[in-house]
Write a protein that binds this DNA or RNA. Structure first.
Ligand code: FES
Ligand code: FES
Lengths: 151, 151
DNA sequence: AAAATGTTGACTAGAATACTCGACTTTTCA
DNA sequence: TGAAAAGTCGAGTATTCTAGTCAACATTTT
């Protein structure tokens, strides 16, 4: 159930860029602050740019800059685009459903669906702004969290 | 965020054995019902035996039999032993914590912890009996689920 | 004794992950 | 105007993980 390095590093980079919102930050500087190598970041940042999260500026004093508002960057979305569906099992995925042999009578699927829903609930509800302000879902409801299944 | 085939297959096998609780079931029969190859099941069932979930009987008419009560088999536990911690990140794992470079000032850790907690809450609360009776956490509270952080 | 099972350990093919690297393009600024 | 400082792009690679296989062996039943 691990999250991959790409997703993790993308979030680290977004945090750096969010903190310096409005400023152009070079890959090198992001690398220093995230402890991710420059060459790996190249890949990740370029992808984030193509997905519309960042803008870039070339040449001397160039770098990346956050394009959207931090409150409009959804963590679930970022993780999904960088490493695929949140569901622990293809058959329970909403964004990328894949059939399963035993599906008609499967007694596990409801569990996977529930797991998917809970993860999606947490991540889709969290924005970059929330992370920057150390305001995660947990604290929103006073160490108490409730949710409804949305489908 | 996928769950591996080993965890999945182990649960399939436990469901078969739970359904036939008290009966000795051969690997072959489990294979037929789970669509997992006999040789792969060998590995998995043996592990489940060593972990105390199953007993085995050798020779003709031998096979596996569920040792514990279905209500005492915890799904979170099964997944953890078969494929490691539930946490999406080592630094947020309670069962197998691993330090993280950026940890002191990390703004992601609270998120990973929350994700871990929600997954753990769902899985640790579900038993084999729940699965057999199609009674997953979701239904326990009328499509509404609430939880507290336990640590 | 033969047949039907579980037991054990080693082994392997393939996929995925986590990167690296070199050549190129654009921009700045001395 | 040219060198240096960036980002861009496409490929390549090393390592790890996954998902399984398999053969030889041990035990039990009939
Ligand atoms: S696990 Fe996919 S349908 Fe059962
Ligand atoms: S992700 Fe582990 S401490 Fe930040």
């Amino acid at each position: 159930m691990k999250v991959s390095s790409k997703g993790e590093y993308a979030l680290r980079a977004l945090l750096v860029l969010g903190e310096l919102h409005g400023k152009v930050v070079s890959i090198q500087e992001i690398s220093d602050k995230t402890l991710v190598t420059v060459s790996y970041l190249e890949q990740i940042l370029l992808k984030l740019k193509k997905l519309g999260y960042l803008e870039s500026k070339r040449g001397t004093n160039g770098g990346y800059i956050l394009k959207r508002e931090t409150r409009d960057i959804n963590i679930g979305e970022v993780i999904r685009v960088l490493e695929g569906p949140l569901s622990p099992m293809g058959c329970a995925s909403i964004t990328k459903y894949e059939p399963c042999q035993l599906e008609p009578s499967c007694q596990l699927k409801p569990l996977w669906s529930l797991v998917r829903d809970t993860i999606a609930y947490v991540l889709d509800q969290t924005t970059l702004e929330d992370l920057l302000e150390n305001r995660i879902a947990l604290n929103k409801g006073d160490d108490f969290l409730a949710f409804k299944r949305t489908n």
